[in-house]
Nucleic acid binder design. Structure first.
Length: 588
RNA sequence: CGGGGCGUAGCGCAGUCUGGCUAGCGCAUCUGGUUUGGGACCAGAGGGUCGCAGGUUCAAAUCCUGUCGCCCCGACCA
């Protein structure tokens, strides 16, 4: 391809409104153009990169035995009503009705396709002999995000690879799941991503039923907990915390004292008012667990984790209690709850860290008052301690004795054991070998294709622009003739371009009549892996220059063998990605 | 949904507080010339509903009211 014959609108300056590197660079490099909040056009270069990611996904899914289909984005609303997901999705589901003759048809744009695929399988699969089977598609999904943001990281319309497995038993589901998990690892590795597979909230099946594939990145919206020593990795929601033992000698207990704290209801206000550390405070949260109130004690500087609380309590549903309930239980307005002197006797669930709070500060269960010198065992009693909080940086790893690190991350993939939720709702049943009718057991597996590009850019760019691995690069090689008005230069560039193209190399010839500096800046901004410079001086000696985007040093090669040399370099890098990986690991 | 910021040429911005000549600057574009290995230079040219609507005024990019859009923080996220 010749630069002058395609559309590559690069920008020298950062467009107003773009802040994070992937967004800025995708716009500046002419990969995407914005139509409205959360909706982007993929321009020629962006589309090529997206197609490459798609192709890698397709190859690995096929290799894992998954079967590609294409389902409609347009779906009947009734399908979502059957599974109760009209309500679950709320405004995120883009629904509308169209008129047809004398009736109105209600539809929704698919935000995901469990319903559609289960309906499909319910119609065509009825025997255990037809399973296992995994179906997948790569298709545009629609979600009316409350707040689209961060360029292509969170959009209302995005490209998703979604796969669904159908099995006859939990064991078989486990095998299907493991195959997808392994395929995902290969996909993200081939894309050159530095990713973590983390344990995620698992839903109905429990155990290791859900993993997210996360790319650690400063601008990621998710938080992951990672142990560098043993490799333990989990979503913050899910992460366990190793045993915390306070070995220091406890200070002598001080008498329980009531102090006035007018208007101070938050940890921050109280700590400033009384001059104490948040870590010395006992945060008392009143929850409603399946309609009964409970008190949850969390150290002032920690955050409660509702999933952990729900499990510890053994409840189906928990939520922070309504102010009315809190007032009934504590006898005080919201903000002054404490474990000592609750008006109503309700169960106390304490986080393990509460054991090591000495002379704590807690609400007095009275308006505008707190207690100091609160001592466990003397002033209040706790039968059992649980892990009820989110991990914080430096907490002990649950698997080894090392420390956990907390990092922002971008979710690029999610694998999930669904069970029978959708097959039961949509009557997807099969006859087993004992002639029993049973619901099909499902798994679902998603990849955000656009996020692969964005997270790659987010994590590997440098001051000059994007740094593509060969696997995803819109073009693997860019040819830069320094002076296109020089006839020998133009001839050499054209011949090399044609030779590389015939050899199956994705090559772009920058045939613009621009100064060399302009072309170099653009080549760096877009981030083509290999840059080939054809200059008049070198050509007189039969030499041209090649340089990898991520390396500083260029080298001269013979023009005579240039096509073969370059094709061989690219083919090797396509297979191994080793040069890119080496540079990426140096950065990390 | 709560808080904040911004809409002026294709892109980036100044001008708005304190209303006043023909609405400016840089980049990009077009023409001519000189240049040609890291975003060249000279000369000239084209390009504007100042987001939109209404109001105040002799006069509005500027003040007032409403409205639309974009971005950021927070809440939410099957």
């Amino acid at each position: 391809m010749r630069w002058s014959q395609t559309l590559i609108p690069t920008m020298k300056e950062t467009p107003e409104g773009a802040e994070i590197p992937s967004h800025v660079l995708m716009l500046r490099a002419g990969l995407i153009g914005q139509l409205m909040a959360g909706a982007y056009t993929y321009l020629p270069l962006g589309l090529r990169a997206l197609r490459k990611a798609e192709q890698i996904i397709r190859e690995e899914m096929d290799a894992a035995g998954a079967i590609e289909i294409l389902m409609p984005a347009l779906t009947p609303l009734s399908l979502w009503e059957q599974t109760g997901r009209v309500e679950a999705f709320g405004d995120v589901l883009i629904q509308f009705s169209v008129r047809r003759a004398n009736r109105k048809v209600q539809m929704a744009l698919g935000p995901t396709h469990e319903e559609v695929v289960t309906d499909l399988v319910a119609r065509h699969v009825s025997s255990y002999r037809q399973m296992p089977i995994t179906l997948y598609q790569i298709q545009t999904k629609f979600r009316n995000e409350e707040r689209p943001r961060f360029g292509v990281l969170r959009t209302s319309e995005f490209l998703m690879k979604d796969a669904y497995s159908f099995d006859t038993s939990l064991e078989a589901l486990g095998q299907s799941y493991d195959k997808m998990y392994a395929a995902y690892c290969r996909i993200f590795s081939r894309c050159g991503l530095n990713y973590l597979a983390v344990e995620a909230e698992s839903g109905p099946i429990g155990g290791d039923a859900s993993h997210e594939f996360m790319v650690p990145a400063e601008n990621g919206e998710d938080m992951v907990v990672h142990c560098r020593d043993c490799g333990y990795a989990a979503n913050l929601e899910r992460a366990e915390i190793g045993p915390v033992g306070d070995v220091s000698n406890p200070p002598p207990p001080q008498p329980l004292r009531r102090v006035d704290t007018p208007g101070a209801t938050t940890i921050e206000q109280v700590s400033r008012f009384l001059g104490c550390r948040p870590a010395d405070m006992i945060k008392t949260l009143i929850y409603t667990a399946d309609n009964r109130p409970i008190a949850v004690l969390i150290r002032g500087d920690h955050d409660a984790n509702e999933a952990k609380i729900r499990r510890a309590v053994g409840a189906q549903k928990i939520a922070l209690a309504e102010p009315r309930v809190i007032e009934e239980v504590t006898g005080a307005p919201v903000g002054f709850a404490g474990p000592v002197g609750l008006k109503q006797p309700i169960p106390l669930f304490a986080d393990r860290a509460i054991q090591f709070v000495h002379n704590g500060v807690a609400g007095a269960n009275a308006a505008d008052a707190h207690l100091t010198g609160v001592t466990l065992g003397r002033d209040f009693h706790v039968d059992q301690f649980y892990d009820l909080r989110n991990a914080v940086d430096g907490d002990p790893c649950p698997k080894c004795s090392s420390k956990l690190a907390i990092r922002h991350a971008i979710e690029v993939g999610h694998v999930f054991k669904l069970g029978t939720k959708y097959s039961e709702a949509l009557a997807a049943r099969f006859l087993d070998d004992k002639e029993q009718l049973r619901p099909i057991i499902m798994g679902c597996y998603g990849i955000g294709v656009n996020r692969i590009l964005a997270s790659l850019i987010e994590t590997t760019h440098d001051a000059n622009g994007i740094v593509w691995p060969v696997a995803l690069a819109p073009y693997e090689v860019v040819l830069v003739p320094v002076n296109v008005m020089d006839e020998p230069t133009r001839k050499a560039a054209t011949e090399l371009h044609d030779a590389l193209q015939s050899a199956g190399i994705d090559v772009l010839l920058d045939d613009r009549d621009q100064r060399a500096g302009v072309k170099f800046k653009d080549a760096d901004l877009i981030g083509f892996p290999l840059r080939v410079v054809l200059g008049e001086r070198g050509l007189k000696q039969g030499k041209i220059e090649i340089k990898w985007r991520w390396e500083d040093q260029a080298q001269m090669i013979d023009l005579d063998e240039a096509a073969e040399t370059i094709a061989a370099l690219i083919r090797r890098e396509r297979q191994t990605g080793e040069r890119f990986a080496a540079s990426a690991s140096r950065q990390a």
